[in-house]
Write a protein that binds this DNA or RNA. Structure first.
Lengths: 196, 196
DNA sequence: CGCGTGATTGAAACCCTTCAAGTTTAGTGG
DNA sequence: CCACTAAACTTGAAGGGTTTCAATCACGCG
């Protein structure tokens, strides 16, 4: 239940084995059914969710009632509204499980470990920096690329998600309609391009 | 030359007067002419720039040769390609002074202060968290809002920039053409809306 | 004064959306 | 295991918003 999280911290995050052994007993894990919400607009986000198995999405709903997917989180990703959590503000976003999912719950106790341990501190900064890099690329892409380019970028960045996520959700992530994505795919097919 | 930066750290950032006095002598400041580049695509970003006076912009240039403005930084803002700086990667962006500008140069020495002082640590985290919040809102807006809504959001968020920045740059920030922005403004004017 | 840059306006083209219908796929219960 | 249904995907036609290209206007600066 914690394998991926452990390898994430120890192998990639620079956390020592000893530190992890100390942490492990207090970690909460949770099994979440497909369709369950982990956060709703207006709530304060209390946790970050590390995905051991499964798939989460975060999205907003605009005035016209349309959903806009901000992010997907498959295995080894962390999903949260970091800003809502950090600033104790109510969130603009929803977080929903789109597969049956196992998550590790990370609350302020976890993030406050960086006050005591320099390896947790570095790990936390790495998390934030990675998130910024990701968002920055996303802004740039939304500003500069056509629907087709955004889709090509998506399947390159998340090849497995292309198969696990319905097309209307991919369209929502890209900022286009499902119909448009369908046509983009058709167009790409005639150019002899095959995503799967 | 350091007034705003000092008040930024001490009054808002939780840095003590003593800590700042220790820091001040090693800070470099620089005066930059309008039109000068502080970072070019392909370079590694060595600094973060705190704007004491003036205005910077960061932007990318796409394959078609078009500019896309990612961010503006007027007084009291910090401009950098944080990811390039942190990960030592070459940057996808340019940073340019669009007014004669005075900046404080912040290099890794500055950011490494967080290893020693818990107030600098908190300050740094606050910087990153604010940046994430900003980018998150920007992504959401680009996904969900029309040109008109994006413009209205812009003049609400940066009322002074509306006057200091040329319209084609605002258009570039919003992800539309200057012509479109001109028409949006005309449309808003007929609805009896006056931005200035 | 004249030049260059930025802003505006018009007309045509284009990309994407909307709406509606039809087809395919996947899941459920008999 | 098939039949039924709902959801997802596709396709078409029409419309809207934005871009493109071109021409004109306004302004500031040398």
């Amino acid at each position: 239940m914690l394998e991926k999280f452990k390898s994430y911290l120890v192998d990639k995050g620079g956390i020592t084995e000893a530190e992890f052994q100390e942490l492990a007993p207090v970690l909460q894990t949770k099994t979440i059914d497909k369709g369950t919400y982990l956060l709703r607009e207006g709530e304060v986000c209390k946790y970050a969710f590390f995905v051991e198995q499964g798939l989460l999405r975060s999205f907003s709903i605009d005035q016209a009632g349309k959903e806009h997917i901000i992010q997907f989180a498959p295995e080894n990703w962390i999903m949260s509204d970091i800003s809502s959590n950090f600033f104790n503000e109510s969130s603009d976003f929803f977080i929903e499980a789109i597969e049956n999912t196992e998550v590790v719950l990370l609350d302020k106790t976890f993030f406050n470990l960086s006050d005591k341990s320099s390896s947790y501190r570095k790990y936390n900064e790495l998390l934030l920096q990675n998130h910024i890099r990701h968002l920055q690329k996303r802004v740039n892409l939304l500003l500069s690329a056509s629907a087709e380019k955004r889709y090509l970028n998506f399947i390159q960045l998340y090849p497995d998600l292309t198969l696990r996520v319905s097309q209307w959700m991919i369209a929502s992530y890209l900022g286009i309609t499902p119909e448009s994505l369908s046509r983009v795919r058709k167009e790409l097919a005639t150019k002899n391009f095959k995503p799967n």
